[in-house]
């Protein structure tokens, strides 16, 4: 399957997977789920860049999210495989730039490897939790959550439109490239000289489409100064409990090195 088509399928899947699901997580207020996700990301990023093992307990959060998500482990892994090369590119130079020796579990290696590993773990946890959250709540849930957290309506609308525009752009690109491919005979790929016209055509088509979407919005009374109400949502005890328990857990992980404490406890129990 061409990569563009694959991207489109994945993006559509994001919403499709979340559609009409009813899990304990879907029944929580989107704002509560969102708050916890933000707290998770903040906690994750607040660790020192040399910490790796201390991050591991945080994997419980995406693991539990996965329990409620319709995303299969294989699909999650395939999403992550797309992102991992970027993370690796960002961190791979650290072992050569930070060569100070460090000893871990009796092995001596460059401190840069710790930074690289930490980056890899953090990137993986952050990406997987965002993906799982999106597939569990759906984009509709995410936008509602943002509005309930009093993020300005214009900003949420911009985000929704940007997402819509990405889809339009991908759809149009796919159509143009399919039409091109079908008339390319045996040649594969796009000739260098044709890229300019293809990109120009794509820009004009998407610009035109964006114009029509804007016209349709104006005809339905859209004006940037129109206040869009905050979606109704009453927090129940479970919502508060959900937020409090996760906040407590993140605080515990951040203030105590749980893996180290666990290791020491095991050493005391099994001294041999």
């Amino acid at each position: 399957m061409p990569i563009l088509q694959q991207c489109l399928t994945w993006l559509r899947d994001f919403d499709h997977l979340a559609d009409s699901r009813s899990t304990p997580l879907n029944r929580r207020q989107p704002a509560a789920v969102f708050l916890v996700a933000i707290a998770f990301l903040v906690t994750l990023m607040s660790f020192s860049r040399y910490q790796v093992a201390a991050l591991l307990p945080l994997a419980i959060y995406p693991a539990l999210l996965w329990g409620f998500s319709p995303l299969s482990l294989a699909r999650l892994a395939s999403f992550l495989l797309l992102v991992e090369p970027i993370i690796i590119c960002l961190g791979i130079l650290h072992p050569w730039l930070d060569t100070r020796p460090v000893t871990v579990a009796g092995f001596v290696f460059a401190q840069g490897w710790l930074v690289f590993l930490s980056l890899l773990v953090r990137g993986t946890l952050a990406t997987s939790s965002v993906l799982l959250l999106t597939t569990t709540l759906g984009l509709d849930g995410l936008w509602r959550g943002l509005r309930q957290l009093r993020v300005p309506a214009w900003l949420v609308l911009q985000m929704a439109l940007t997402y819509r525009y990405i889809l339009v752009l991908l759809e149009e690109t796919e159509r143009i490239l399919t039409a091109y491919r079908l008339r390319s005979g045996r040649r594969t790929g796009v000739r260098l000289g044709d890229w300019g016209s293809l990109a120009g055509g794509l820009f004009l088509r998407t610009y035109d489409r964006a114009g029509r979407v804007h016209q349709a919005m104006l005809l339905r009374g859209f004006a940037t100064h129109n206040p869009s109400p905050v979606p109704p949502g009453t927090w129940v005890a479970q919502d508060y409990l959900y937020v409090l328990l996760w906040f407590a857990f993140f605080a515990l992980v951040r203030t105590h090195d749980l893996p180290s404490w666990l290791g020491q406890s095991l050493e005391r129990i099994f001294p041999w």
Binding site: D140, W143, L161, Y163, V168, R212, V213, A216, L219
Partner: peptide
């Protein structure tokens, strides 16, 4: 909204999640 227009291509009109 008192004069409603349904566009030829519904994709031009539907944009929310």
């Amino acid at each position: 909204g008192r004069i409603g227009l349904a566009f030829q291509n519904p994709d031009d009109q539907l944009f929310l999640p």
